Simulated assay, not measured.
Amino acid sequence: MFEPIVRRLHNWRLRNIARRKLATLDDRLLADIGTERDNIGDFVARQPDL
């Protein structure tokens, strides 16, 4: 019963961690992985593993 809620909370937490880590990278490194600073949220949301 609570497993889907726990899984969604865990995934939300992982996405937030990823956003914070990506925000610390410089623009050149972000370009190397295929995104820009303004698109970090969308980039993280599109990742299948998070």
Rank of each mutant, 00 (worst) to 15 (best):
L14K: 04
R13Y: 00
A18M: 14
R37L: 03
L22E: 07
F2K: 12
N11L: 13
H10N: 06
M1K: 13
I40V: 07
W12T: 02
L29A: 10
R28N: 10
E36Y: 01
I17P: 03
A45T: 09
R37G: 03
R37F: 00
R8I: 10
I40T: 09
D42F: 02
R37V: 01
L9K: 02
D42I: 08
G34T: 11
A23Y: 10
D26M: 01
D27P: 01
N39A: 05
P4L: 04
P4Q: 02
T24E: 14
R8L: 04
N11G: 04
L22P: 11
N39W: 06
L25V: 07
D27T: 07
I5Y: 14
V6T: 07
V44H: 05
N16G: 08
I5C: 03
L14Q: 11
R15G: 07
N16R: 14
R37P: 03
R37I: 01
P4A: 02
N39T: 14
L14T: 10
M1E: 14
I33E: 03
M1G: 15
R20T: 12
P48R: 12
I40E: 03
M1S: 12
R8E: 15
R28Q: 11
R19L: 04
Q47V: 12
A45M: 13
W12Q: 11
L22C: 06
P48M: 05
A31K: 09
K21A: 14
N39M: 05
R7A: 08
D32R: 12
L9E: 02
L30D: 04
M1L: 12
R20M: 10
E36T: 10
A23C: 08
V44E: 10
N16Y: 02
L22N: 06
R19E: 12
D38R: 05
M1Y: 14
P4H: 01
M1H: 10
V44Y: 04
A31T: 04
E3R: 13
L50P: 06
R15H: 04
D27A: 11
Q47D: 12
R8F: 08
E36F: 00
L29Q: 14
D38C: 07
L9M: 06
P48H: 15
V6N: 03
A18T: 12
N39D: 15
I40N: 04
L30P: 00
R13T: 09
L14W: 01
N16H: 08
A18S: 09
R19M: 06
F2M: 07
N39P: 00
T24V: 10
F43E: 03
D27R: 06
H10D: 06
K21F: 10
G41T: 09
